[in-house]
Design a protein around this nucleic acid. Structure first.
Length: 322
DNA sequence: AAACCACCCAACCGCATGTCA
DNA sequence: CTGACATGCGGTTGGGTGGTT
């Protein structure tokens, strides 16, 4: 036997919410909370809605401190950076942007930000010149382990040997000594000029999750395996582009030693590797870096909220346990 | 002023996973 | 242990709106 029947979907009201419904829901939740039971809530609140619909309305619109309207450049950068790192995990991305909902970010990405990136890609292609590498954002100025073309990735060839800049006449490696930052511009340029080696398109997380005083750091990145035949048409990226089946996560125990030698150790995770479920791996990363005098950072495992937060002085990663 | 078009975004849908009887 | 239901998530849709012809 299962549970008691769910709400009657045949009679549940659908479509846009009226102001009356909004205030009923808002009043009820402010007074009594959700009670951890969305299915029972509409009946108690006097609404002819499905619990699922109530939950969505509350989370995306009525919840306090919801921010609507234009996204800032900073928010753009964060979204791009996280998208490059974890793909369309909107709920995780939303967790990094206070006041923004996953739905908001998803819509913003699909309607504006993605187009912005596409436009930049097209512009760069037509102009046949390298897109600009942008100076480091103040936010990231202390991050030392950006995913640069000079990085070394044990299972693959060092990035420095992967792709000489195809458009530079002098055939030098593009931005070989530049720090790489995740602005839309840099994201596009990275994807364009380092698209694949042996069927891998490599993305870096950008920010080290933990950086220590000796300069070592850890971060999570992934490589997305792509089909060679798709490369000629490759202009964008995303979870719905058909590549997700070939997604492979690379968990980096990455460190750059004081001598500048890259001692990254990469562990390939199977397709479908779930960051949220492999918190132990993440913890190991953090703790291994902690052994290297990582005293500016902390791990705060808040079990009541089901989250584990890893924070550095300049970068933050908040990974939810499911 | 009307028709058309493109865009935005709130809401729905379906799936995966967790929970409970 | 099993299966029905709850929850949360990402993808998709379609009505509303503003701009253009």
């Amino acid at each position: 036997m299962g549970r008691a029947p769910c709400c009657d979907k045949a009679t549940a009201k659908k479509g846009p919410w009226s102001t009356e419904e909004d205030s009923k829901l808002k009043d009820y939740i402010e007074k009594y909370g959700t009670g951890g039971n969305w299915i029972a809530l509409p009946l108690k609140a006097g609404l002819k809605r499905c619990g699922k619909s109530c939950r969505l309305r509350w989370l995306n619109y009525l919840r306090p401190n919801i921010k609507h309207g234009d996204f800032t450049d900073e928010e753009d950068r964060i979204i791009c950076s996280l998208f490059a790192s974890i793909g369309s995990r909107w709920s995780i991305i939303a967790a990094q942007l206070p006041g923004r909902t996953d739905n908001d970010i998803k819509n913003y990405w699909n309607t504006k930000l993605k187009k912005k990136l596409m436009a930049m890609t097209m512009t760069s292609q037509y102009q046949r010149k390298p897109p600009p590498f942008v100076s480091l954002s103040p936010l990231y100025k202390d991050c030392t382990n950006f995913y640069t073309p000079t990085g070394s990735f044990t299972p693959f060839e060092p990035m420095s040997s992967l792709q000489p800049d195809p458009l530079n006449n002098d055939n030098t490696t593009l931005a070989a000594n530049s720090s790489f930052i995740h602005t839309p511009e840099s994201l596009v340029s990275y994807m364009q000029y380092y698209p694949a080696k042996e069927n891998f398109l490599m993305f870096g997380s950008g920010e080290p999750r933990c950086s220590s005083s000796d300069g070592s750091s850890s971060h999570i990145s992934y490589a997305r395996e792509i089909k060679q035949e798709d490369m000629s048409n490759f202009q964008g990226f995303g979870a719905s582009n058909g590549y997700e089946d070939n997604l492979k996560f690379m968990l980096s125990h990455g460190c750059t030693s004081t001598g500048g030698e890259d001692v990254n150790q990469w562990t390939e995770k199977p397709s479908g590797y779930n960051l949220d479920k492999d918190l132990e791996d993440v913890k190991r990363l953090i703790s291994s870096s902690s052994n290297n005098s990582c005293n500016e950072n902390f791990i705060d495992e808040n079990k009541t909220q089901g989250t584990v937060m890893y924070e550095t002085t300049d970068c933050r990663c908040n990974i939810r346990k499911i």
